[in-house]
Design a protein around this nucleic acid. Structure first.
Lengths: 202, 202, 202, 202
DNA sequence: TATGAATGAGCCTTCATTCAT
DNA sequence: GATGAATGAAGGCTCATTCAT
């Protein structure tokens, strides 16, 4: 008895998911060139050939993974849309970012890798630009709400700061004082400090 | 009549230089895996084989390029050793960094690439860690001199900030408000602002 | 519908066989360095890449061929384990060896090549040493059984003699009086002659 | 002042000698394919280029080396032309051969290598055939003189025996009972034994 | 849908050979 | 005659991709 098309759809979806997940893992660990279709297949527990049933080429798998990364990052942002208190948003954002840096280091690396090698996936740059822009925009709004002067540029600074911490941590993982920096920034961008900065301008 | 060994030394030096320069360019554009020895040779205007007369393997060329990058960065630092006024150091440092980001974008990219792929060159991580550590240390001293509280962690923040700006600029080059951020930071880390921060602590 | 693993096993076995056979032929004709993976592939009627689906490196193919040679030689020996009459064993051994020299000349050449170039396959020396040792040991036993004095050293002589004939035949194939030497040795190591030698000692 | 053509001739001769000597050494150690022109040059203490001033190609150097080997072997033979006593000739021959096997192992290997890979030097086979033929012929004469029956075929056997010992020694150097075999053969081909064999036939 | 054997283009590397000096 | 920098052909090996089943 052949499968119904509904069953097939489900299978396809599940398999695709599996492949992307495996790809995410392998790509993050090895980078685009270092990763092998064979290894992705192995990690996914399927055959090499099957991957080509779902993706036309290695690059297309990378594209799908990129999308996944974007989705994850988007989810990361929207998580704060419900939070009302702007100070709380910032605090959560900081904590969440530091957690990501700490725990999903490889994931971070993938994110940077993609962005650094636009020759692999043209879309990468555009896609990430958007993500970053949104991120910055969100921060900007928050800053604006709490009357931080120069909100826009301060938002850029905030974003760069976190990206920079992430990068520097990647470089010198073992000795990087990630915790201390986190505390430092939590204070610097804490309610009290931000309020003072807002006042100072007046 | 054979060439004198002096002549040969010169030739070798020049050719090596040529290769490294070409390598720097190609590696920066394509990344280690994306770059091809053939392309490096073409860019250098020499034969593939000749490269192996100077470097044992692709990795060794990468290593040499890495060294070059380090030398440049080291020169970058020492440039400020003569400057006495701490406020001036910071100003110069900022301006210089922004110039590098703006003009040597590809160079920047290579720097990050290397650091992100320690599988390629083991030394990369160590080497960059040291460079960064020195950089941070220098800033820390300056901050300490002008009584910025938390000098060490502030130095880390400063370094991360600049790295982050560099990265974000790489991501979204065309729309990134590099100039405005530069101005912003020049103010934020300007004499006046820093003095206030020093006082504030008291 | 994918092939059953049984089918795959069969395919792999057959292909591997094909490759080894082609390798044996090409290696014997050209030697390890002279032989080309491309040529082996061509001789096997497959693509270059496929060889690496079965062997990690050229050396490993050589190793497999070496094993094949060893298997053949081992089979060669065991063939006489059933024969009881020691004189018959020697006669058969001689005839068999001369047949091999005559008909499997290339095979012989490969055998010697491998043994002469242990840089290529470390195991070669060990492996062949064992084969030879066994061979000598077998002869020694036979000699001992028929009371030939100095059985051990005579066995070494016997082995050297046959190896030497093989080599000399390789050198000067066309003019080498292989048949006459065979007859000569059949007589010299024939029942009658050996019995006399045994008696002589008394 | 330019060199006289006589001086030049001398220089050329000496240099050629040096190259061949170095080549002999390197080829013996590494085999034809394993040896490198660069290494030969280094061993000779000259430049790569200079070799091509004396030999058109690697093969031609090999050919010259081959000739050298032949000369050495020929000298080996002629050394006995003066000896009158046939028994002494055989004894000397045996001792000399075993010495060569023992001390000039690498040289032996080269000899065999050349003979085994006629695709490298076509002449090798012819040349060695001649050498061997002469060798055999000489033995044959000696055997004939002392009335050994079947002198010709016995000579072939004698030659094969020595070649075989050489090969087997190459295979299993460390454990091969070279000394004992030497003694054994010295007895077997000693005056007393040979005389008996001569008588036996009558 | 799924498998993995098979293909072949492409890349790194070696090294005999050439050539400017 | 001598040097060694430079060339380029060739070969080993990898791996994305195809295809028969």
């Amino acid at each position: 008895m052949p499968r119904t098309s509904e069953q097939n759809r489900e299978i396809r979806e599940r398999t695709k998911e599996t492949i992307i997940k495996a790809g995410l893992s392998v790509f993050a660990r090895k980078g685009f060139y270092g990763a092998t279709i064979a290894e992705v297949a192995k990690e996914a527990g399927i055959s090499k050939g099957l991957i080509y049933n779902y993706f036309d080429a290695k690059k297309d798998l990378a594209k799908a993974i990129l999308q996944q990364v974007v989705v994850l990052m988007a989810g990361f942002e929207t998580a704060f849309k419900e939070t009302k208190d702007p100070y709380e948003i910032i605090e959560k954002l900081l904590k969440e970012t530091f957690n990501t840096i700490r725990e999903n280091t490889e994931f971070w690396r993938l994110y940077v890798s993609f962005a650094l090698q636009p020759e692999i996936i043209e879309e990468a740059k555009t896609v990430f630009s958007e993500v970053i822009d949104n991120y910055i925009l969100m921060i900007e709004k928050v800053f604006r709400k709490i009357k931080i002067p120069n909100a826009k540029i301060e938002a850029y600074e905030f974003g760069a700061l976190l990206d920079g911490v992430g990068i520097d941590y990647l470089f010198g993982k073992d000795n990087y004082p990630l915790e201390r920096i986190e505390k430092h920034l939590l204070k610097k961008y804490g309610k009290k400090a931000l309020r003072e900065r807002a006042k100072a301008k007046l």
